[in-house]
Simulated scan of single mutants.
Amino acid sequence: MQFELDARPDAATLATALRPLDPDAKIALDGASGRLDVISSASSEQVAAALRQAGYAVQPVVQELHVSGGSTCCGGCG
């Protein structure tokens, strides 16, 4: 799942915000654009809520792109 952030936080700050929700979450951040890629067992709504609670304005991305070498492939296309 991907999100657009209004600020340009560092990845460590974002990981700290998501750790209580999912300690195994993986993130990739494109600091220049503010696009955040999250791989987590939590739902998109839960991740967005955790980021908002940490003080970030976030919007889910409608059309996901590869971020920093991360993959948006779920393997379901066959």
Rank of each mutant, 00 (worst) to 15 (best):
F3C: 05
L5S: 12
L5N: 09
L5R: 05
D6I: 08
A7F: 11
D10F: 00
D10S: 01
D10C: 00
D10L: 00
D10V: 01
A11N: 05
A11H: 09
A11P: 06
T13E: 05
T13Y: 00
A15V: 07
A15D: 09
T16Q: 10
A17D: 03
A17T: 03
A17F: 01
L18R: 07
L18Q: 09
L21G: 12
L21D: 14
L21Q: 10
D22G: 05
D22Y: 01
P23R: 00
D24H: 15
A25I: 08
A25Y: 09
A25H: 14
K26Q: 15
K26L: 12
I27R: 07
I27C: 08
I27E: 08
I27N: 10
A28G: 09
A28K: 11
A28M: 05
L29V: 04
L29P: 05
L29T: 07
D30M: 06
D30Q: 07
D30S: 11
G31H: 13
G31N: 13
S33M: 13
S33W: 10
S33D: 12
S33A: 14
R35G: 02
L36K: 00
L36S: 00
L36N: 00
L36R: 00
D37N: 12
S40M: 01
S41Y: 14
S41G: 14
S41W: 14
S41F: 15
A42F: 02
A42P: 06
S43Y: 02
S44K: 08
E45A: 05
V47L: 02
L51C: 01
L51D: 02
R52M: 12
G55H: 07
Y56Q: 08
V58G: 04
V58D: 02
V58H: 02
V61A: 10
Q63K: 15
Q63D: 15
E64W: 00
H66S: 09
S68C: 13
G69W: 01
G69N: 04
G70F: 12
G70W: 11
S71M: 08
S71H: 08
S71Q: 10
T72D: 02
T72L: 00
C73D: 14
C73F: 13
C74R: 09
G76Y: 14
G78Q: 12
G78A: 10
